[in-house]
Design a protein around this nucleic acid. Structure first.
Length: 454
RNA sequence: CUCCCGUUCGUCUAGCCCGGUCUAGGACACCUGGUUUUCAUCCAGGCAACAGGGGUUCGAAUCCCCUACGGGAGGCCA
């Protein structure tokens, strides 16, 4: 166990944003890599927006991602409480220190932090007003990701609101001090705030933690960082859409970090082993759902058939493809055929609907293609009696008898395949045809061919 | 408007710190072919990038400067 202590400090907003998730993940990875402690602290100072419901979304999201915390809600710890709403007296104590040091003043009912330096007033184009500014000594941050960053604060800022509640900058710094946080890993959107925070650490006469500002995730289309309303922004969405947590975790790790070799699919132990600040990129990364989906498909294919079936069942059930009492053996043999073709669990119902119901759509484009090349009805009329006679109804035997048929008719066996597939599935593509026929069974297959012929 | 950060194929990135081995490598996507049937799997191949300009140097994707572009911050939100 090292002395390294990192924290993830989300505010419960009712959803778990992919950017937050990655910040949590990077903190967690760093803690696990270094043998340090991962603290989960809930920044619930904004009373309007907080609820048990919102907290639950957050904790569930963390758990789904496999991010366990060493200290925080549910598990406790020696640095609690872990909810900012319960740390009021601590903030008051620390505020008092600043007041005693003469670093605060009151204005319009709020308490402000007083910067040190020469004061002057100037018109501010952004605030559209004449405001007081301070010429301060620049704050130098040795950021673990970006290197030396220098920035000077130039305006006093609020510490405690008119309503008596301390603001983010104060509580964040006080919590990091009192919780013994050694490394602050957070999004680059906080880089500009860091000078405020360092001013406070200095005012408290405490050494600031190491900062590591990680790049942001940009939205897939358009400009700007990913925000709640963007497609793919919410972790709970991946869960409900049947993405595998391991795949999502793997993917977002790669958004801003890489192992410096050519590998992309890495299991979590390898990532923990390799993860460190030098591997983190400086540039923002654009989210790409296609790449996530490709990784997800890889993970999906690795699943054994029992796990795959377990995960797939609810999706098929919700889509109305299989009923509650669907036959497990049949379901499993169907899924065994479809698993290699599936890119997501979400796509499964459309992929294998025709295995379960006669109510499946006939793809007209495929029909046109087939008719262009051959006369499917003639072909299937030849095939039907053969399939009715094959014994047993298994792919090897089906193949043999179709080949015999093809020979006697003077053409290659595969001329039957497209029409056959189309008649039984309505599709132009799908799993290997012969095993598919075997799984469907003679009754279903011959019935569909007959229907097609009429 | 000000400040901070960034910029290698369409996208994620390797290379950059320690200039030559980079005719810039991998992956996703896309295209072509193969897997003597289909295909969303698999295999092979292909397309495609050092933002621009100056400098330093025998030599720059790699070092320096400027510009452009992108992102972030400037809340009594977090």
């Amino acid at each position: 166990m090292s002395n390294i202590r990192v924290r993830f400090a989300p505010s419960p907003t009712g959803f778990f944003h992919i950017g937050s998730a990655r910040t949590a993940l990077f903190n967690w990875l760093y803690a696990r890599h270094t043998g340090g402690t991962f603290v989960l602290r809930i920044e619930d100072t904004d009373k309007e927006r907080n609820s048990d419901e919102a907290l639950k979304v957050l904790l569930d999201g963390m758990k789904w991602m496999g991010l366990d915390w060493d200290e925080g809600p549910d598990v406790g710890g020696n640095y609690g409480p872990y909810f900012q709403s319960q740390r009021q007296t601590i903030y008051e104590q620390y505020l008092k220190k600043l007041q005693d040091a003469g670093r605060t003043y009151e204005k319009e009912g709020a308490i402000w932090f007083r910067l040190e330096g020469e004061r002057y007033t100037a018109y501010d184009e952004f605030h559209k007003a004449e405001i007081e500014k301070v010429k301060t000594a620049p704050i130098v941050i040795e950021d673990a990701v970006r290197g030396r960053v220098e920035r000077a604060e130039e305006k006093d800022f609020v510490l405690v609101r008119k309503d008596g509640n301390p603001v983010f900058h104060l509580v964040n710094v006080v919590d990091d001090i009192t919780m013994g946080i050694t490394h602050v890993i957070r999004g680059e959107d906080h880089l500009s705030n860091t000078s405020k925070h360092v001013e406070l650490f200095k005012a408290f006469e405490v050494e600031a933690p190491v900062f590591a500002h990680i790049p942001l995730i940009l939205k897939e289309e358009g400009s700007g960082k990913m925000s709640k309303r963007d497609k793919g922004a919410l972790i709970e969405e991946y869960e409900s859409r049947g993405f595998l947590a391991a795949a999502v975790r793997n993917y977002i790790t790669l958004l801003g970090w890489n192992p410096k070799d050519q590998r992309e699919k890495l299991d979590i132990e390898e990532i923990i082993d390799l993860f460190d600040f030098p591997g983190i990129n400086k540039g923002n990364a654009r989210f790409d759902e296609k790449k996530l989906a490709a990784l997800n498909a890889e993970y999906l294919r690795e699943l054994n058939i029992a796990s795959f079936t377990f995960l797939a069942r609810p999706f098929l059930h919700t889509a109305g493809v299989v009923s509650e009492e669907a036959d497990e053996d049949y379901l499993q043999s169907v899924l065994k055929l479809c698993q290699p073709k599936a890119r997501s669990l979400e796509s499964l119902p459309e992929l294998c609907r025709y295995f379960f119901t006669d109510e499946y759509p006939m793809d007209t484009k495929t029909a046109e293609k087939i008719i262009k090349k051959s006369d499917p009805k003639t072909l299937l009329a030849e095939v039907l009696p053969v399939l009715e006679g094959v014994e047993p109804f298994q792919h090897e035997e089906i193949k043999n008898s179709l080949e015999t048929l093809a020979q006697t008719q003077g053409h290659k066996v595969f001329v039957y395949f497209p029409a056959l597939r189309y008649a039984v599935s309505g599709q132009g593509g799908g799993p290997d045809l012969l095993p598919m026929l075997e799984v469907m069974g003679r009754k279903r297959v011959t019935k569909r061919i007959k229907e097609f012929l009429t």
